[in-house]
Design a protein around this nucleic acid. Structure first.
Lengths: 232, 232
DNA sequence: TTCTCTAGTTATAGGTTCTAACTAAGGTGA
DNA sequence: TCACCTTAGTTAGAACCTATAACTAGAGAA
């Protein structure tokens, strides 16, 4: 009996066919998300484009939400891999360059398919349906950010903010829960601040809040990145 | 003939009734948005709750998108008014307190109805086109932020970033287009950075990205606000 | 009183998700 | 080889949704 996690080749034909069909469904689903966002996703229209009837897809996904959940998880995985590929390992590049690479990777990944980013970070997470693997994948870019920021000198704001108090405990509890390399709370706070700033700029740019202003969000991003590198 | 913009009282009964009905529709629509977001808005279910049949509502809104657009515009106006009320005028309070009031007003307004904030600044609803009045309303909180930040000393990042170059021109063009009091590009850049940071924190908190971490977003907000006040 | 305009009605078309019950065909074991 | 079982896909249909067309009843105005 072959392994459950093997690729679509070298499997019994039934399972192989099933994997190919799943892939086709999700590819078409991504197409729909790409042009109209999660709201535009329609099982019926995917079925039509595949040349089958609507109810056939319920053999592959329990309902529309299940497909959406699967896409979200795949999205997180894709983002994590893009970040992993783009950011050099420790020692392979200067810390400043690693942070620049991280920010650039996030920006590129989100702008090349705006609705994909918004699907992950723009709508309330259902919570009831999110499998544990999703949280795992979603955390991976943050772990990279921890690793990058640990090499950069901490700013004055972090060190004073986490000197005792509830925030320090919350940050410590968070990184402890996630396991992996130990991360000091200063670094965790720095990472959260970096992440939220990046998200603010990216998401406002993606939904078009900058277009009417004529201001280039990427230029603002450069200013923010420089501030981050200056320890602020 | 009475004025077109008069309130619902003191108008011919036909027009008065129409305004009351419009109000009732929008109130119920906000209720639906509050619990399920823009995607959960249903003309049919609003009609049911009003005790009329579905098609009756098409006398008041051309289609579902028209109602959504109206809500968005109303949302921007509400946010602008909340900010106007919360932030003291120049001279009535110290600049630091005015910025704190602004941030607090934004945070309160967004968290008291998360889906309302997300309707304005989250993923765009397919088919939505903002009328000119919306831009006007949407800019009002930013104008307040200009006014507040103009009183605070500019940080080093802004002054160097806008020393010539495209960004300076873009910022100058933007504030010139919007009219009102003249705003130096340093202040405009500072406002954009403040706005995007605030949005990043608020929106990630609203969609629940903080819940799994156990970190209190409001504590992070305080750190960011302190950094802003320190000129960073 | 009569006329007109409007808010609501019903009927209907076409879209969606999703369930139930049936059919056809491929894979498996005796 | 044959029978069985599992699975993918089918049709039919319920319960929603948006939206349009055509009709009706009643309020306001001439």
């Amino acid at each position: 009996m072959p392994e459950a996690a093997s690729p679509s080749s070298r499997r019994p034909p039934r399972a192989r066919y099933r994997e190919l069909t799943l892939r086709e469904i999700k590819d078409l689903a991504w197409e729909q998300v790409a042009e109209g966002g999660g709201a535009a996703l329609s099982l019926n229209s995917i079925a039509r484009r595949m040349g089958v009837t609507g109810p056939a897809l319920y053999r592959y996904f329990a309902n529309r939400d299940a497909l959406l959940t699967d896409l979200v998880c795949e999205g997180y995985r894709g983002l994590a891999e893009a970040v992993d590929v783009a950011v050099p390992e420790r020692g392979e590049a200067a810390p400043e360059l690693r942070l620049r690479a991280f920010v650039q990777a996030m920006w590129t990944w989100s702008t090349e398919m705006p609705h994909r980013y918004l699907l992950l970070f723009g709508a309330p997470v259902p919570g009831y349906a999110a499998p544990e693997d999703t949280f795992e994948q979603a955390f991976r870019p943050m772990a990279v950010l921890f690793d990058v920021l640990a090499e950069l000198p901490a700013g004055p704001a972090e060190t004073s903010a986490v000197s005792g108090g509830r925030l320090r405990d919350q940050l410590a509890g968070w990184v402890a829960d996630r396991g992996g390399a130990p991360v000091p709370p200063e670094v965790a706070l720095r990472a959260v601040r970096c992440w939220t700033r990046l998200h603010g700029l990216i998401s406002l740019a993606l939904v078009g809040q900058f277009t009417a202003t004529g201001v280039d969000p990427e230029a603002v991003l450069r200013v923010e990145l420089d501030a981050l590198l200056a320890g602020h």
